[in-house]
Design a protein around this nucleic acid. Structure first.
Lengths: 225, 225
DNA sequence: TCATATTATGAATTCATATTCATTTCACGC
DNA sequence: GCGTGAAATGAATATGAATTCATAATATGA
């Protein structure tokens, strides 16, 4: 029993060190990107020797991948239930918007890292190819979004737009907002921004009056400067 | 006169070589990102010796910066006139959407490079800090977009959403679509996607009937799973 | 206190690229 | 065909990390 406690103590210590390294690495990667952070830098910032880092992780890539995977799975576990709930499609999308922004609020560095690496659908190219998990998670969420939208279209809730376009646009727009919120640390504006994004996607930017008048001719009255 | 022609010939040759190098470098940077392309690779692909590249550009960064600046200015010169025209705000935004996608069509590698480096409002961080010009161009366009939107709000054409949110969302969504179009080379779908984006932004995803019914209660009827 | 196992250390090594520069090739005018 | 300067060449060098590993420090249990 005594042995067990002490052995466990060791392990806990080690775990703590591991966590410290991961946290520092996450912060640095999120700030500067994979290529612009050296293992030296991570070691120094975490106050360990370089060798120590390599006791925990086989390589820089492995360290990065591990962080990415963890973050990706966190995001997934928070957002997925919303898209898979029993709520109607409109509520699901509204929930997705709110969740995306709240998830960010909780640990901004982590999410920022995830977004950085997965910017755009071209996640495969460049830095991001390290973590298959992260790419999978991104694809999973996009697929779910498309399904929700398509279901809404079938039920007549949503317009018959290309679900691919809608899901990409929504995802991209949310990222952009999330980043912008990350820059100015104004907390008040966040709630307003969420509302604006909801309005924007659900009802568009045109005022209703215009909306109805313009809707019929929208596709035809081009050609004038 | 004879001398002049011949001297000019030399210079034209040299200019052509320069262009070849730039084109190759652009392609590679766009495909793999700055850090994942070596000067060796560029030289080999362009069929020049490494030293030759350095006869034209002081460093890898300088080469990259030059490309970025050029691309950024091209984009600006194509899109800016639209936002500064005399058309009404709705036409300006519609024009912006169409232009963004057409600009891309013309030389996809170049635009892709530009987008890659400027993903998100965090353009400052990471690879992108090489080219101030590119960042300036991005900021300029965002500012113009906001101004157009704000003007539309004042005139009562647009809803009173945060112009920052709208311009960010529009920009981000367009990028995402542009990338996705880049991946599948399906030309037919492009036109449809443009239309969908316009619909999405101008009128939202909700059907009109729902639109009117839901608009009042949208903010209050949450809380049910 | 000692022997052992575990963990941490960081100088030395390795490796991939960026960059340099002495040499060669080439185009042109004579 | 020859002399000259511009342009191209690529082996050699410089640089900046990533990774290794022999050694030191530390904890554990007897």
């Amino acid at each position: 029993m005594a042995e067990k406690t002490k052995a466990s103590r060791r392990q806990r210590e080690r775990q703590r060190h591991r966590t410290e390294i991961v946290d520092v690495a996450m912060k640095l990667f999120a700030e500067k990107g994979f290529h612009n952070v050296s293992m030296q830098e991570i070691a120094a910032e975490a106050e360990f020797a370089i060798g120590t880092i390599y006791n925990f992780f086989d390589s820089k890539e492995a360290l990065y991948r591990e962080i990415m995977d963890e973050v990706a799975n966190n995001v997934l576990s928070l957002v997925r239930p919303i898209l898979e709930s029993n709520a109607d499609e409109q509520e699901k999308l509204a929930g997705f918007i709110r969740a995306s922004i709240l998830v960010f609020r909780e640990n901004s560095a982590a999410i920022r890292l995830f977004l950085r690496a997965n910017q755009g659908p071209l996640a495969n190219i460049g830095t991001a190819h390290f973590s298959e998990t992260a790419v999978e998670v991104h694809d999973t969420l996009q697929t779910k979004l498309r399904q929700v939208y398509a279901a809404g279209v079938r039920k007549g809730t949503f317009r018959a737009l290309d679900p691919r376009v809608v899901s990409l646009a929504l995802d991209a727009a949310l990222r952009a907002i999330v980043f912008s919120v990350a820059e100015d640390t104004d907390e008040t504006s966040l709630e307003q921004k969420v509302t604006d994004i909801e309005e924007l996607f659900f009802r568009g930017i045109l005022h209703d009056a215009w909306n109805r008048a313009a809707s019929a001719g929208a596709a035809s009255d081009r050609g004038r400067s």
